[in-house]
Amino acid sequence: MTSSTASTFVYVTFIRTTPEKLWTALTSPEFTRQYWFGMHHETDWKTGSSWQLMFPDGRVADAGEVVEADPPKRLVLKWRNEFRPEMKEEGYSRCTMELEQLDEAVKLTVTHVIDVAESKFIGAVSGGWPRILSNLKSLLETGKVVLEQKV
């Protein structure tokens, strides 16, 4: 899905945890709600399954499909925004999360790409992912999130 017109966002962080604990944090609805401002995923995390990211009030924020699930190493989602028409019309993006053990930490790389030049969706996730992943890192390392704001 990478062409000369693609928009890409990449975020890398190092979290003092294990790949297994990080995988659980990324995929467990109960854990996700704690760092993703009350939002959670609905899926069985099997390749080919539908995937939805839900607002706390039950509305669908984003939806797509599990493209690849290789716990606790790699997760790939086909991902489309469902609540902002200007982003929904851009179509599906691809979000890849790669987990790599490095000594006492796990390197988490999130790559979000869409085949749209100057994508509004990638502009939005480039602001969202740092907040979400900072909360995730802090929650795993200290038991507390950094940012309490709601989406």
Rank of each mutant, 00 (worst) to 15 (best):
E98D: 15
K120D: 13
R33P: 00
R16M: 02
F9S: 09
R33L: 03
T27F: 01
P19A: 08
V113C: 07
G127K: 11
T27P: 01
V125P: 02
D44S: 11
T13S: 14
G127F: 08
R84L: 14
V145T: 15
T13R: 14
S93T: 05
S7D: 05
T27H: 02
R94W: 05
K137M: 07
E82N: 13
T24S: 12
E141N: 10
R59L: 10
D115R: 09
A25W: 03
W36R: 03
V116T: 11
P85M: 13
P130H: 07
T109P: 04
H40N: 09
I132G: 01
E148S: 13
R80S: 14
P85A: 14
K46S: 10
T18K: 04
G123I: 00
E90P: 07
H41E: 03
F83W: 15
S134N: 13
T5Y: 07
V67D: 05
K46R: 14
L139I: 05
Q34W: 01
F31A: 08
E104D: 15
K107W: 02
D62R: 04
K73W: 01
L147Y: 14
L99M: 15
L108F: 09
K144N: 14
G58Q: 09
T96C: 09
A6H: 03
K46G: 01
A124H: 15
N81R: 10
H112C: 03
M39Q: 12
V76N: 00
F9H: 12
E141Q: 11
D115W: 06
K88H: 12
V106C: 13
K144P: 00
L53F: 11
I132V: 12
G91E: 10
F14L: 11
S50L: 10
T17Y: 02
V151T: 10
E98G: 08
Y35N: 09
S138N: 12
V60A: 07
T5E: 11
V116G: 03
L53N: 09
R59T: 13
S119I: 04
F9P: 00
A117W: 01
M97F: 11
V146E: 13
L136P: 06
L133C: 11
T109G: 06
T47K: 15
S3C: 03
M54E: 01
I15T: 05
W51P: 00
K137S: 07
K137D: 03
A61Q: 11
E65G: 01
P56T: 11
E100S: 13
G91D: 10
S119F: 04
R59Y: 06
P72Y: 11
H40E: 10
K107H: 04
V125F: 10
